[in-house]
Design a protein around this nucleic acid. Structure first.
Length: 467
RNA sequence: GAGGCUGUAGCUCAGUUGGUUAGAGCAUCAGAUUGUGGUUCUGAGGGUCGAGGGUUCGAGACCCUUCAGCCUCCCCA
């Protein structure tokens, strides 16, 4: 028999892993709720047309498509058409509802936009929603990259106020503070990037410029210039960016903003972007005044963000620790007209996403999971068979009524086997309801950490266990 | 889509310029120990050496093909 396996880039989770993941989910959920966000869920599958064209060319390629059912049951006439369509799919990137009508969710933002359009009449705006569900991408898996992974998104839709941006920054700060992950939150605006493109005389090359610029810390300035040349962007104007960067490496966010404003006098769009960043920071500091958060927020005009529906402030979170090498663990931004893609115009939204699988990996490497999150049943009731078995069932029920996590060993196996099981599973206590104990209506309670044992009533046992 | 590395027991891995019956640790099961776990000791089970082909008297090892996994680039959470 061949060994079983799971698809590339997917994972099983053991009980200990699920508990640690739930610790992250729980932390985020509490914060989202505290900030007034409400949960929604959407299907794992969307209609393919809902997703295509929303994530750029590369994104389209990475959408997991679902093959239609019943392809064999079509009439000959339909089959002839499908064969032609299939031939096209073999030749170039192409998809058709005749063969793949549905696809797995690629992120949580586009499905949310679709949700908003469909539920616009029964949703009060501004609407704050959070969503924690898996997404799928047909990417090549590698470190920190999976084909199935979970996102936790919080979005505010139906308000253009920058208070929303500031609150989302608060949520980031609060969440990573509670999870004990040191982070740097990079802040930028699509309008600043557009301004840069204007100043460099290539307003139509915004995407190419930003993608190259985004790699600055990886490939250096020379690498960026190289990249730009390959994309047919005249390098001489771009030198301007280098000057700006040189003058904004130091100082706090406010002094840097002032320097940037001087550089951007020629670009109304750029100045608008800087003003947004400035106001966002202002609101953020009002919201966090006196709080014990140490958010490391950094204006970074090289931050690009891949998703091309962003229009305003954009943000990205990276782990700020020498111990951990990991890409971004969260990101987000404002999208002025996302629902417009589905026919609902004039509704602006802003959102952030937590990449919880990467956050998990980072927390594992940092060793910041609380030890008590890995907790299973607390008490094992041994099984001596016969009359004692009935007594054991009575005992385990009494323990559960007292709110104690307890399980009874289901077979009257050899005693040492039951003890080894208890040891391996890490119970705190083992209750021994043997014949001697039953006669006295008592149990032997063994503390499995210390090894000590005493003969007590059930009430006494409950008191000791819950102490 | 491009490149690199690795596939040997359930897991982590040894395996000499190609040489007789492929090993270890961990894990599992049994016993030492039938109402007392962790430690220890003894024993057992477990392998088409990823798959297919080739070279050779002889291949786990060398060559080709293929599949899978990991990593890097691209891109992203």
């Amino acid at each position: 028999m061949s060994k079983p396996s799971i698809p590339q880039g997917t994972r099983d989770f053991t009980p200990a892993e699920v508990r640690r993941r739930q610790y992250i989910f729980g932390t985020l959920r509490r914060i989202f709720e505290l900030y007034g966000f409400e949960p929604i869920e959407t299907p794992a599958m969307e209609n393919l047309v809902t997703l295509t064209g929303k994530y750029g060319e590369e994104g389209d390629r990475l959408i997991f498509k679902v093959l239609n059912n019943g392809l064999h049951a079509q009439s000959d006439e339909v089959k002839g058409k499908m064969t032609a369509e299939w031939q096209k799919m073999l030749e170039k990137p192409y998809s058709t509802p005749a063969i793949t009508e549905r696809a797995l969710r690629y992120d949580l933002t586009i499905p949310f936009a679709r949700y908003m359009v469909m539920h616009q009449n029964d949703t009060a705006l501004p609407f704050r929603r959070y969503q924690m569900q898996p997404v799928w991408r047909a990417d090549r898996p590698q470190k920190g990259r999976y084909r199935e992974f979970w996102q936790c998104d919080a979005d505010v839709i139906g308000s253009t106020s920058l208070i929303n941006e500031a609150e989302l920054l608060c949520i980031y700060s609060e969440a990573f503070h509670q999870l004990q992950v040191p982070v740097k939150i990079k802040l930028n605006s699509r309008k600043v990037l557009a301004g840069l493109a204007e100043l460099c005389g290539v307003p139509d090359k915004l995407t190419e410029l930003t993608i190259a610029l985004d790699k600055l810390d990886k490939i250096g300035w020379d690498g960026v210039l190289n990249e730009l040349q390959q994309r047919n962007i005249p390098v001489e104007h771009v030198q301007r960016i280098s000057d700006i960067l040189d003058n904004t490496q130091t100082g706090n966010n406010y002094t840097r903003l002032n320097v940037l404003k001087d550089f951007f006098v020629g670009s109304a769009t750029g100045l608008e972007g800087l003003e947004e960043i400035s106001k966002t920071l202002h609101y953020f500091h009002s919201l966090t005044a006196g709080k014990d958060l140490k958010p490391n927020i950094d204006i970074d005009i090289t931050l690009a963000r891949g998703l091309n529906y962003y229009t305003g402030v954009i943000v990205e979170v990276v782990c700020d620790s020498d111990k951990v090498k990991m890409g971004s663990i969260g990101g987000g931004g404002r999208y002025d007209d996302l629902t417009g893609l589905f026919g609902l115009k004039g509704v602006s939204g802003v959102g952030v996403s937590f990449g919880i699988d990467r956050i998990y990996d980072v927390m594992e490497e940092l060793g910041v999971f609380p030890t008590n999150v890995v907790q299973s049943a607390n008490v094992l009731v041994a099984n001596f068979g016969g009359e004692e078995e009935t007594y054991a069932l009575h005992i385990v029920q009494r323990l559960r009524e007292a709110g104690i996590c307890a399980e009874v060993y289901p077979d009257a196996s050899k005693f040492d086997k039951q003890m080894k099981f208890a040891n391996k599973k890490g119970f705190s206590f083992v209750v021994l309801p043997g014949s001697e104990e039953r006669k006295e209506k008592k149990v032997s309670l063994k503390n499995f950490v210390s090894g000590s044992q005493s003969l007590v009533t059930i009430e006494e046992a409950i008191a000791v266990i819950t102490a």
